[in-house]
Design a protein around this nucleic acid. Structure first.
Length: 209
DNA sequence: CGAGTTTGACCAGCGC
DNA sequence: GCGCTGGTCAAACTCG
């Protein structure tokens, strides 16, 4: 686990009743529909403790399933802050020249994985896919050990954006969907722009008077 | 026909 | 070294 620094939301030591929210688009956009209802915020920490089953967050975030979190409190949200470096772009360039399935490309993607911030959070939803305002393309699905439900892998469809997310439903509580975001979008959210553009125009119009 | 999804194959990392 | 597992690729397929 070198190069990883895990942060928990909320931090185990805090007594605040509301969790800190990571800068994540799902908190800006409605889920599961195009309505403007508030997005599904994580429940307060004490409620999480009472209701949610144990989740192997380390496994979720690191892709490794044998580790355990020492802290006994289940986290509502976990951020893994890695050192941001420029491996990503270098990797993408090299990836383009690599036509082989797996192989070197795989090695590069692992480097990428170790260098990007990741946020995991869970929501209660009947739908696996949260409508977070961005467009995603599914590129894989895998059966996961100790889980009845497969894990789905998505990539942001924006051509300059390499953000990924994993979506998995908990087998212990099938109403809970765990979403792990990897990376940060380098472009505005399409739905946010769609929503705000007419408002901004109206504001500009009104500000003339 | 283009964009997105499905799915089997491949590879790397890790534990034993 | 081997087997297991997670993550990714890419051809085939589906859908609007």
């Amino acid at each position: 686990m070198e190069g990883h620094q895990e942060q928990y939301y909320p931090p185990p030591s805090t007594s605040s009743s509301l969790p800190l929210l990571p800068p994540h688009p799902s908190y800006l956009f409605p889920s599961s529909s195009t309505s403007m209802n508030p997005p599904p915020l994580p429940e307060p920490h004490h409620q999480q403790q009472a209701q949610l089953p144990d989740i192997d967050w380390v496994s979720l975030l690191s892709g490794h399933h044998d580790h355990q979190i020492n802290n006994n409190e289940p986290a509502a949200m976990v951020e893994v802050n890695n050192n941001e470096n420029n491996v990503i772009e270098a990797a993408q360039e090299e990836k383009g020249s690599n036509k082989r399935k797996g192989g070197e490309g795989r090695k590069i993607s692992v480097m990428k994985k170790a260098s990007r911030p990741r946020f995991a959070f869970q929501t209660r939803s009947a739908d696996d896919i949260l409508d977070d305002g961005y467009r995603w393309r599914k590129y894989g699905q895998k059966a996961v050990k100790n889980s009845l439900y497969p894990r789905s892998y998505y990539r942001c469809t924006h051509h300059t954006c390499s953000v990924k997310k994993q979506v998995q439903r908990l087998s212990k509580d099938t109403s809970i969907v765990v979403t792990t975001y990897e990376g940060v979008h380098n472009h505005p959210c399409e739905k946010l722009m769609e929503t705000l553009t007419p408002l901004l125009k109206q504001m500009q119009f009104l500000s003339r008077f």
